Simulated assay, not measured.
Amino acid sequence: MKKTVSYSRRLRTRDAACYCGSTKSTFEKLRLVGDGPTYAKIGRVVVYDVEDLDAWLDSKKHRSTSEYSSSL
């Protein structure tokens, strides 16, 4: 029986921001305030799972400007 290993794709901050159409500095600020996607820190390196980025982007979808939270 052959084992299949599945690896999650992880991106560093700059690549994760680019993937989401944003900038590295915006992602750094989002990490600071806790409003960004979940991430892992390995030593000094911050990485994001592509699946977490997709879920975070999905959570940011709106149909109208009236759907935005008043706490922005």
Score class of each variant (00 low, 15 high):
K24S: 09
K24I: 01
K24L: 03
S25V: 15
S25N: 15
T26A: 15
E28K: 06
E28A: 10
E28G: 06
E28L: 09
K29V: 10
L30M: 14
R31T: 07
R31H: 09
R31G: 08
L32W: 08
L32N: 11
V33M: 07
V33F: 14
V33L: 08
G34F: 07
G34W: 05
D35M: 10
D35W: 11
D35P: 03
G36N: 02
G36E: 04
T38W: 03
T38C: 13
Y39L: 06
Y39D: 02
A40G: 13
A40R: 08
K41W: 01
K41V: 14
K41E: 02
K41Q: 11
I42F: 13
I42A: 11
I42W: 12
G43Q: 04
R44G: 12
V45L: 12
V45Q: 12
V46W: 00
V47N: 02
V47R: 02
V47H: 06
Y48W: 02
Y48K: 06
Y48H: 04
D49F: 06
D49C: 12
D49M: 08
D49E: 14
V50G: 02
E51M: 12
D52C: 06
D52R: 00
D52W: 04
L53V: 13
L53A: 11
L53T: 00
D54Y: 04
A55G: 07
A55W: 04
A55F: 02
W56G: 00
W56M: 05
L57M: 15
D58L: 13
D58E: 10
D58G: 03
S59R: 01
S59Q: 03
S59H: 04
K60M: 10
K60T: 02
K60E: 02
K60G: 02
K60W: 03
H62A: 05
R63G: 15
R63V: 09
S64H: 03
S64N: 03
S64G: 09
S64P: 04
T65Y: 14
T65L: 15
S66C: 06
S66F: 06
S66E: 10
E67K: 00
Y68R: 05
S69I: 00
S69T: 14
S70Y: 15
